[in-house]
Design a protein around this nucleic acid. Structure first.
Length: 742
DNA sequence: AGCACGCCGACT
DNA sequence: GTCGGCGTGCTC
């Protein structure tokens, strides 16, 4: 495998020149000057003798400046005040007539014990050591630092994501005894992949193979993931797997328990509750457990002697952290693979463009099955186009095309049938109730949507409300949603097949599994239960329209991903497993599904992105704020060569993701193109009391060539620090790798 | 980010 | 004379 002897191979995202990240941040971190002073402190309290200074990462406070503060260590705390422990310090005090006054208590972590300080002034003493547990170990701190640099974020923000809150009771309990390494597992179903056994063999002998694994459809992937982890453990190293949700994590946890028994690994998910979760995290931090299966936050788990990092289904949006600086599990694990010299396994039923890029760049090898194996495992895929649907009389009556109806009826004789319906929250596009023609805006021909429950359709492009719409084709005046929700579908199907039980799995109630008896299982994407036994007899994928019509760079990739995840739960075609997808068969993701060729799809997407100079080939950052704020950021930024500025344009309203704070109103903004950067705050007409002034928000995209991502992150961070130090009035939001670009 | 100090206008 | 505007600067 690629990693066996090439430890120095460059990851595509590695900082330019290959050195370690964030060179330009040195000026912030490198506050150590030559004028080292012996620490003085305020009251003449006795200080610790050997290393009287504690360098502290203060939580909150000046996160933006992203710097450490030195505190004096009272003699009484000498023993406990070790690097990594949580402390409490007084911060922000003022000197009044030679005495310190005020200052509020902040939590923080000791990062280092020192003999001296570079702060010219008296040090305040540590207020309290909260716990002797060294949670922010040097290795974890280094990882947090890397992630902060990668995302132009503040260290304290990342540490908050990486270190769980303290639960005193869990800390008091001793962690279990470390176990000896388990025996080497058999490859099992890994044999189905041409290079599967070779990958395991490399893991087994302590190498660091890196692979993008296209899992075959079917129920075997949790066991395969667990086998890879067990192999890393057997080689004497630790292993970490991150999964998109608790259900998937539980499946791998079960598989790992079947392989290793209890006690050699932990499951880190929110389900366990904060105290139990912290207990398990401590077992990892203390080094007594060397394997972790978990959801997103587990990406930081401080596994000792890490040998393998694995990520399942990196296209799932839950792998993107919601809190600043929004690190993505894939990127964090890539950092860890590089920095901690580990094997890497990126698995999924489909591939993201990022996964394809890892293969294209040669950093990882593809781990895929032969066409023959794919044919043996995949269900038969059939499509229903819009034209088929419109022609289809049955469609009008039951909202279910006749093909779907037939397949369902036949399959129900053999087992359960999965019905994938759009998730609520997707803006339903509208169509003429009479002729099914998509409803369009009279002004700009954009698609009409229902944005809220008010019932008035709004143009998705120009935002104009369409109160008195009529169809341009047939003159009809009634609209209907082109997608139907889960409950409604369930009801209708229940009427069509009255003798079959209907079960639903969605946002509020997600079923983990269903039995193998005939049933209609209506689920939203991502909430599909696994069917026991051989799997579903058939699946209907009814949300093709909703998935493909999103104005998103990833719409195709995402549609294919969701379809394939559902289709992977269906029996192979050899057992009459059939999938009916309501989507145009000419569309690229639909073809990729029919041929079951997710790798080809990802590769084509990747080459298109490269042509268009889109991420992840180029790297991007976004700056959001008022025109004045954006202009100020641009003036402050020292961009790497080859950087493009795109925009600024008004921030698309409605979706919360990009709103800095508060709710941007819906209102239609004609089509104004942002213009220059001249107009600053309008002091003229004062807004009425109570109505908050709505400053225009715009978004600037910054694009840099491949390889300059780290330089861009460094520039952003530098600008952020400079602006914060200057006390810039206008807030601006800066993000690396913005998700929602057009 | 908070928070205090500081130096200029209309009130008891 | 005093309250209070937010400009400026600092926080180990």
């Amino acid at each position: 495998m690629s990693g066996e002897n090439g430890q120095d191979e460059q990851h595509p995202d590695a900082p330019d020149g290959g050195a370690q990240g964030g060179e330009q941040l040195a000026l912030i971190r490198d506050t150590v000057r030559k004028n080292r002073a012996k620490p003085r402190t305020w009251r003449g309290a006795a200080l610790a003798e050997g290393l009287p200074v504690a360098r502290v990462l203060v939580d909150k406070g000046l996160v933006h400046l992203d710097q450490y503060f030195d505190y004096a260590v009272p003699a009484a705390m000498d023993e406990e005040a070790r690097p990594g422990v949580r402390v409490r310090v007084r911060f922000g005090a003022r000197v009044v007539k030679g005495r310190r006054e005020g200052g509020t208590l902040h939590d923080g972590f000791i990062v280092e014990r020192r003999a001296d300080t570079d702060f010219r002034g008296p040090l305040a003493p540590l207020a309290q050591v909260l716990s002797p547990e060294p949670v922010l170990t040097p290795a974890l701190l280094a990882l947090c630092r890397q992630v902060a640099d990668r995302y132009a974020g503040a260290l304290a923000d990342v540490v908050q994501l990486a270190v769980p809150p303290r639960m005193a009771r869990a800390e008091r309990d001793p962690s279990p005894q470390p176990r000896s390494d388990p025996p080497m597992p058999e490859p099992g179903s890994w044999e189905r992949y041409a290079t599967g056994p070779a990958y395991l063999a490399a893991l087994a002998r302590g190498d660091t193979p890196r692979a993008v694994w296209l899992a075959l459809p079917g129920p075997h992937w949790p066991g395969e993931l667990a086998t890879a982890m067990a192999t890393a453990l057997a080689s004497g190293r630790g292993a970490l797997a991150v999964l998109p949700d608790g259900r998937a994590a539980a499946r791998v946890d079960q598989a790992l328990t079947a392989l290793l028994g209890e006690g050699r690994h932990v499951l880190l998910t929110a389900d366990a509750g904060p105290e139990e979760r912290y207990r398990r995290w401590l077992a990892v931090s203390r080094g007594t457990v060397k394997a972790v299966v978990g959801t997103r936050a587990a990406m930081f788990a401080p596994v000792a002697d890490l040998g393998l990092v694995a990520l399942w289904d990196d296209g799932d949006s839950s792998h993107a952290e919601q809190h600043a600086p929004q690190p993505h599990a894939r990127e964090v694990l890539l950092l860890r693979a590089r920095e901690e010299r580990t094997a890497f396994l990126l698995g999924g039923v489909t591939s993201t463009v990022e996964g394809a890029q890892l293969v294209e760049s040669g950093w990882a090898l593809p781990l895929a099955a032969s066409r023959a194996e794919v044919r043996a495992a995949a269900p038969l895929i059939r499509t229903v186009s819009d034209a088929d649907q419109a022609r289809d009389e049955a469609a009008r009556a039951a909202r279910l095309p006749s093909l779907a109806w037939q397949v369902t009826r036949d399959a129900l004789a053999r087992g359960p049938v999965l019905v994938q319906v759009p998730r609520r929250g997707y803006l339903p596009k509208l169509a003429c109730d009479r002729c099914r023609e998509p409803a369009r805006c009279a002004a700009c021909a954009g698609p009409l949507e229902l944005r809220d429950r008010s019932g008035t359709p709004v143009c998705g492009w120009c935002g104009r409300p369409a109160a008195d719409w009529h169809c341009a084709e047939c003159g009809g005046t009634r609209l209907r949603a082109r997608v139907v929700g889960a409950r409604r579908t369930a009801e209708e199907l229940g009427r069509v097949f009255p003798s079959v039980p209907v079960r639903t799995s969605g946002r509020d109630t997600v079923l983990a599994s269903v039995g193998d008896a005939p049933a209609l299982v209506v689920a939203t994407p991502g909430a599909e239960p696994v069917a026991d036994g051989p799997g579903y007899a058939a699946a209907l994928l009814l949300d093709g329209w909703a998935l493909l019509n999103r104005p998103d760079l990833r719409a195709g990739e995402e549609a294919l991903r969701r379809w394939a995840l559902a289709a992977a739960l269906v029996r192979p075609a050899s057992q009459q497993g059939t999938v009916v997808v309501l989507a145009e068969p000419t569309l690229r993701p639909v073809q990729a599904l029919v041929r079951w060729d997710p790798a080809g799809h990802a590769l084509r997407e990747l080459s298109e992105r490269a042509e268009l100079r889109f991420p992840p080939v180029a790297r991007m950052a976004s700056v959001i704020g008022s025109p004045a704020a954006i202009a100020d950021v641009v003036d402050t930024l020292r961009l790497p060569p080859g950087a493009d500025l795109l925009g600024p344009v008004p921030v698309p309203s409605g979706r919360g993701e990009w709103e800095a704070r508060g709710r941007g109103g819906g209102g239609g903004r004609g089509g104004g193109s942002g213009g220059g950067r001249g107009e600053r705050g309008e002091r003229g007409g004062a807004p009425a009391q109570g109505e908050r002034e709505r400053e225009p928000r715009e978004r600037l995209l910054i694009r840099v060539p491949p390889g300059s991502g780290a330089a861009l992150a460094a520039a952003l961070k530098e600008a952020r620090v400079a602006r914060a130090a200057r006390g810039a009035a206008e807030p601006a939001l800066m993000r690396m790798d913005p998700l929602d670009i057009g």
